[in-house]
Simulated assay, not measured.
Amino acid sequence: MAERTTRRDWHDWHRDYADPDSALSRRLDTVQARIREFLDTAAPGPVRAISVCAGQGRDLLDVLAGHPRRAEVTARLVELDPRNARVAAEAARAAGLHRVEVVVGDAAAVDRYADLAPADLVLVCGVFGNVTDDDVRRTVGYCTQLCATGGTVVWTRHRGEPDLVPRICEWFAAEDFELGWLSAPEAGFGVGAHRFTGRPRPLDRGGRMFTFVDTRPPG
């Protein structure tokens, strides 16, 4: 997660994953499918991955644990809540994912990704539903610094009114991202995957992408 003003307990929030029929679990399955698809089709060789507001890391770690390319992936998961970060670190260790680093810190701080950006896979899941629209747009712009040419950004956003998902797609398109996949509106949640066709911009050292606010619903 990131520095925030919200009162939500982000550790307890993960309990919904225990229910396989919950919207959160279904969204996780969808995000994992996009990550798996990326890894299945990525060019041979090393892969760099970044997870912004990683939570307990279930999206990436669960896929890497059983994927044949697991040893090729170097990843950094950044999470503010030390309880969630501890769960993620323990999961990575148990799965033998020695090239996965879990960092406790403010995920909105661009410097957290300095030595891995631009990355081949950038996860921005559970962010866009918890920040202002201006910060969503700002973060999309920062993805041009975090993502390598040909890399993929996977993101989420709830479909509650006002539905921002169409505008998010427009913002990505304006930054030279190609839409690769988007969940249907009737899914009840938004998951998108965009491929970067542009050239990465220099990293804005000291920059901040967003600040969490107390919004509902999460996502």
Results as ranks from 00 to 15, higher is better:
P82T: 01
I168C: 05
R157A: 12
R137K: 11
E90C: 05
D106R: 03
P202A: 09
A119G: 08
V87F: 14
L123K: 15
G151Q: 14
P200Q: 13
Q145G: 11
R167G: 00
L179P: 08
A184V: 09
A114F: 11
R167K: 02
A187F: 14
A117V: 12
A88V: 13
V154P: 10
W155C: 00
A88I: 04
N130M: 13
E79M: 09
F172T: 04
A193I: 10
V153F: 01
H158P: 12
D133T: 09
R195D: 07
F172C: 08
G180K: 03
G126D: 14
D111K: 09
V127I: 09
L203A: 03
A187Q: 05
E178A: 09
D111H: 05
L179Q: 09
Y142V: 02
V102Q: 13
L164E: 05
L97A: 13
G141N: 01
T197G: 15
T149M: 03
P118T: 11
F210K: 00
H194F: 07
R199S: 02
E175W: 02
R83S: 01
W155I: 11
W181C: 00
R195E: 12
M209F: 03
D115W: 12
D81C: 10
V165I: 10
R195T: 10
L116M: 02
E170D: 15
V136K: 02
R112Q: 07
V103P: 11
V124C: 07
T152V: 13
R208W: 02
T197H: 12
Y113D: 10
F177Y: 01
Y142H: 08
L97Q: 10
L179I: 04
W171S: 08
L97G: 10
V124W: 06
R208Y: 07
E79R: 03
L123C: 06
R137Q: 02
R205D: 08
N84M: 08
G150H: 13
Q145K: 06
P162G: 06
R99H: 14
A88C: 10
W181R: 03
D120T: 08
G188E: 14
P200C: 10
V124D: 15
L121K: 12
D111Y: 13
V102H: 11
D135V: 00
A109V: 14
P118K: 12
F189H: 13
V131T: 07
L146V: 05
R208M: 04
E79P: 15
A174M: 04
L203G: 11
R205N: 07
L121D: 07
F189G: 13
D133A: 12
R159V: 05
A109Q: 15
W155P: 00
P202H: 05
T149N: 06
A174Y: 00
L77V: 09
V104T: 15
F196C: 09
A107Q: 14
V131K: 05
A107C: 09
G198P: 07
H158D: 15
A174D: 07
W155N: 02
F196V: 13
G126Y: 15
